[in-house]
Design a protein around this nucleic acid. Structure first.
Lengths: 349, 349
DNA sequence: AGCGCGACAGCAAGCGCTTTCTATCTCTTG
DNA sequence: CAAGAGATAGAAAGCGCTTGCTGTCGCGCT
């Protein structure tokens, strides 16, 4: 048998109520009593029964963090930052919460399932990270779930994800993907490039769309025609970047620059260019996005847009814990910073 | 008020017991009744109360995954694999479990706290990944916790972590770090290197120690003296690799090869060498460990030891779910595979 | 001296589910 | 055709905790 509150109470010669109060510290208890109780807890090696506690108190100490791909440092970094603000001994005592990260793998069903599971656990808060899927039905279902969660007292925070008009209660910390994409392409145009390829992420994703829109806005602003054949979609992985680059090169060998969905994909693009006998940036410039840790180690180092992943995550975590005021209007835009490095240069000839 | 089982029962005109049985599917229910219940569930948009359910059933559907650094793909990849086997809609219906990853940040206290939190939640299983901290007191405390968890019916699996003699109930899938380290150094020795630097991970970590032991075993086997000045310890990050390399070079500029704790650190080492005007592998060969996705994109591509992170994680996940037999004796060693690539070559002159 | 009040401690009523034990009812089977 | 075997459904007793409500003191006031 495991030790229960009652066992501790018996040992400390007090009522279960008192033990509960000592443990929760939300009610006056004489210090002598408290000590007696704590000693008993220690001696019996008592561990609170979470489910029972959550049931009785109608709240739990779970905080869910949804990520699209936990193996991707983009999410890993955010998740680490969020979790560090959420609990365990990282935060100060009192609100000892269990920050749990759930990997949706980018699948709509899994996203919904996790949300349900979290709702079932009566989570204290939920943080959704990264781009959303742009499917009306799915977006509606998610919004409905978020609304339900909010109603049930769960705090909902979006981190690096655009606000949902259908779930306005959710606090949103959005990345300025459009602005970042624009900066990147403008940088390239400024260097003199006119024939730019674009390797986009998966379709139907807000992140993909926004970055691409920024790119197009830049082209447009400089009167460069946007040839649709110069854009290729793919997954957010290295392999995809490799293949997309080959495809782009096949379609138009005269490209002088390639703007890529993110750094991971950009690495694949670089590999494809090298394997095609092209030098970076002499023959083709390459630009990534996110500024993940390894990007500076690419050879040449990747020009990219740095997103303050860690800061944004930490802030989202604090908001989720109710430890920081939400931004006015419930929405804040987080900007990226253009990092010009060796992978971009003036076009050949 | 949120919807309860009783509400559903009323609506479906059955008893709460029947609703529970329909939901759990562990008791015969006439299909007409089942349908009526399911319809009611749907109409009322009912979501089970997890804590109540866990309390009554004395089990929960939580599975904890402890990682040292969630921002590190090494852990991210394992966590993704474990989680994919654990639940959400990834697995087949029935065992819908919430796989939650907890980031200890390599801190002993956080590790223990998370273990307690999971114990409190009456987790169904716990998977500990990555190297353990070699501190007698802490190891003892962890072992004690694991024993308690096991006693309480929580399945405990170690993935990429050596078995603990004090907690023999835990199933262990260990990486052959020693063997991998040895292979790497032997490869270098085979190429003709005699003055090898070694950049180790943090001290007091099993992974660090084992890889280093493998390195030394190889040196020893070939009669090469192990000059302690050729070994530097550091953290598992890029920065640390950069600094350690500079230090190594300062101590002995005649080094012709550097064996590094892992790929991330190796990237930093490469950067330091480049910044020092040394070519890889012409002047100095570099070898990493783990074969993370970006390692092949380093220039030159990193020679390293590939660990089947994903496979091992998946297997650990299945074992944790009781869906696969544990290895005989509860311990299995997972070997790495030497990947020879461009970053290692014959020594100069 | 009599009261009121603050500071503690305990009682007991749930929280929403699971599950054992029982009660029916419908079929087989001898 | 009676009786035992299944197949279903319900009643009710918790699971271990939290918390509103009741005491019970001891003490400062009037």
């Amino acid at each position: 048998m495991t030790v229960t509150l009652a066992d501790v109470a018996a040992r400390a010669q007090v009522s279960p109520a008192t033990v509960s109060r000592v443990l929760n510290g939300n009610y006056p208890v004489a210090s002598s009593t408290r000590e007696r109780v704590l000693r008993a807890v220690d001696e019996l090696d008592y561990v609170l029964n979470g489910p029972a506690s959550s049931l009785a108190a109608a709240t739990s100490d779970l905080v869910g963090i949804l990520v699209n791909d936990i193996a991707d440092p983009f999410f890993g970094i955010m998740a680490a930052a969020i979790q560090s603000e959420i609990g365990g001994p990282g935060g100060r005592a009192g609100g000892e919460r269990l920050g749990v990260v759930c990997n949706t793998g980018g699948s709509p069903e899994r996203e919904l399932t996790y949300l349900t599971l979290l709702q079932r656990q009566r989570a204290a808060a939920v943080v959704l990270t990264g781009g959303a899927i742009e499917d009306t039905a799915h977006a509606g279902a998610v919004a409905a779930k978020l609304r339900r969660l909010t109603e049930a007292g769960t705090r909902v925070v979006l981190c690096g994800r655009p606000p949902s008009p259908e779930a306005p209660e959710a606090i949103a910390l959005t990345f300025d993907n459009r602005g970042g994409g624009k900066q990147l392409t403008e940088h390239l145009i400024g260097l003199g490039h006119r024939r730019l390829g674009y390797i986009a992420g998966p379709e139907e994703r807000t992140t993909t769309r926004h970055r691409l829109e920024g790119h197009r806005a830049a082209l447009d602003a400089h009167g460069i025609e946007d040839d649709p054949r110069r854009t290729v979609h793919g997954r957010y992985d290295r392999r995809s970047g490799y293949e997309a680059t080959l495809e782009l090169l096949r379609r138009d060998p005269s490209l002088t620059a390639v703007v890529v969905a993110n750094d991971t994909v950009a690495l694949g693009a670089c590999a494809a260019l090298r394997d095609s006998g092209l030098r970076i940036p002499d023959d083709v410039s390459v630009a990534g996005f996110d500024d993940l840790p390894f990007s500076i180690d690419a050879v040449p180092a990747l020009t990219t847009v740095r997103l303050p992943l860690s800061d944004a995550g930490a802030r989202a975590g604090r908001i989720a814990m109710g430890r920081e005021e939400p931004p006015p209007g419930g929405i804040a835009t987080v900007r990226g910073e253009l990092m010009v490095r060796g992978s971009t240069g003036v076009p050949r000839d």
